[in-house]
């Protein structure tokens, strides 16, 4: 039952190999096994969106996948967004300036949901931004500043 499965995957461009139990969630694998604690874990049943990562270009819930399923895949976590821990990318910069976060717990999941969304839809309306954010819960901001941050990013990107 507690048989281990060997997996190899790429996270933020680095290759990782590990032996994992089948029941290990991808979110726990990323945080506990690899120590990439930027990915946060909230509800662990797919509702809050805090654990969202990008897998093969698509935003997915890391708590609704087993690590063993990510064998051979490419994953990006919030640590992969900027060039280094001291630096912010343009979207993160817009969040900082527009006060798009308070406690910051939900922010990694929100950023990882927004990256593929903004790639597919570079000039979203406010309505579309709100729909894109609907799968991520934030208990601090009331969402308005998050929407403002995305609008600021979009305005800069397109000017």
């Amino acid at each position: 039952m507690n048989e281990k499965h060997n997996i190899q995957l790429s996270i933020n461009g680095s290759q990782y190999t590990a032996d994992v139990e089948a029941r290990l969630l991808l979110s726990d694998f990323i945080r506990h096994t690899l120590g990439l604690t930027g990915t946060h874990v909230g509800c662990e049943h797919g509702v809050c969106g805090a654990c969202t990562v990008i897998m093969d270009g698509h935003a997915v819930r890391a708590c609704l996948m087993f690590a063993v399923q990510a064998d051979g895949l490419e994953i990006m976590t919030v640590e992969g967004l900027s060039e280094g821990p001291e630096k912010l990318n343009a979207l993160q910069e817009a969040f900082r300036e527009a006060h798009g976060l308070q406690c910051g717990f939900c922010t990694p999941g929100i950023l990882m949901s927004l990256i593929p969304f903004l790639k597919n839809n570079p000039e979203p309306t406010e309505q579309e931004i709100r729909y894109a954010l609907s799968g991520n819960l934030c208990r601090c901001t009331g969402y308005q500043h998050i929407v403002d941050a995305v609008l600021l990013y979009v305005e800069r990107k397109n000017s």
């Binding site: 039952m1 139990e21 029941r23 969630l25 087993f66």
Partner: peptide, 11 residues
């Protein structure tokens, strides 16, 4: 780990 143990088969 949250889920109980299981045998994993990937055909």
């Amino acid at each position: 780990m949250k889920p109980a143990s299981f045998k994993y088969i990937k055909p």
